Computed example of a mutant assay.
Amino acid sequence: MSTSLPALSDIPGGVIPGVLRIENSDREATTPIILDMLRSVYPHQQVFGEYCTVHGYIDAPPHDVFTYLADTRSLEEWTYSLRGFTPTEQPGLWSAHDRLGSDTTIYTRTVTNAEAMTVDYHCAWDQGRHLWMIYLLRVVDAQVVFDKPGSVVLWTNCHHPFYDTNPYPDTAPTERVPWVGDFWDMFAAGHELELNNLTALCEYRARRGLPITPAWMS
């Protein structure tokens, strides 16, 4: 699926080191990076079996970071593989291509609370009727928790049983081999990679006086 969205058009190519997107690091090149982030000094299943949580500090205003995340199209920029967001006929529901899976469509509805600065992405591969993959994010004012300007982002996923077994096999592309749950053991490292992307992009724009949410999302 091609995209007409001018993602990162306000940033010259290659000027932010450490941003890994499928365009500059394909799955084969990125897998060893993620595997290196998985440490053998702790029991991975015990730490990441039922929940996957990552968190980090971003040197950018919290309400600006929240507003950026609250726009579903931001996923076009800071996630590793979600591309080509297009609104569906259902209000608030977007379809995109998840390039982790061949010919895979992902559906996303974003649920937000501006007062609490929560952003929940309700997603599913292949079909948009039952959005069971829930990505829970909260932006916290770093002035409150760290006594310094900026944002703290908390991000949690729960291991829904559908990660183990595809509940809608009739909607899956016939040629696709992996199921999203096959990547669960890599979620923590993969989400940390994406949180690093989010941090780099927000901080780049904030330090240069650019809007955190670029003009093409307005």
Rank of each mutant, 00 (worst) to 15 (best):
M1P: 07
S2H: 14
T3D: 10
S9M: 07
D10C: 06
G13K: 10
P17A: 13
P17D: 15
L20I: 15
L20P: 00
I22C: 08
I22Q: 07
E23A: 11
E23G: 00
S25M: 14
A29F: 01
T31L: 15
P32T: 09
I33K: 07
L35P: 03
L35Q: 14
R39D: 13
S40I: 06
H44L: 11
V54T: 08
V54D: 02
G56A: 12
I58S: 05
D59G: 05
H63R: 13
R73L: 03
E76F: 07
S81K: 05
T86D: 11
P87D: 04
T88G: 11
P91S: 12
G92F: 05
G92R: 02
L93Q: 06
W94N: 05
W94H: 10
A96P: 00
D98M: 12
L100N: 09
T108L: 10
R109T: 04
E115N: 12
A116L: 13
T118K: 04
A124H: 09
A124P: 05
W125E: 15
Q127W: 05
G128Q: 03
G128V: 03
R129M: 05
V139C: 13
V140A: 00
D147Q: 15
T156P: 04
C158G: 13
C158W: 08
H160M: 00
D164L: 14
T171I: 02
A172K: 14
R176K: 01
P178N: 09
G181P: 03
F183Q: 06
D185V: 07
E192N: 15
E194P: 00
T199V: 09
A200V: 02
C202S: 11
E203G: 00
A206K: 07
G209C: 08
P214H: 00
A215R: 13
A215N: 14
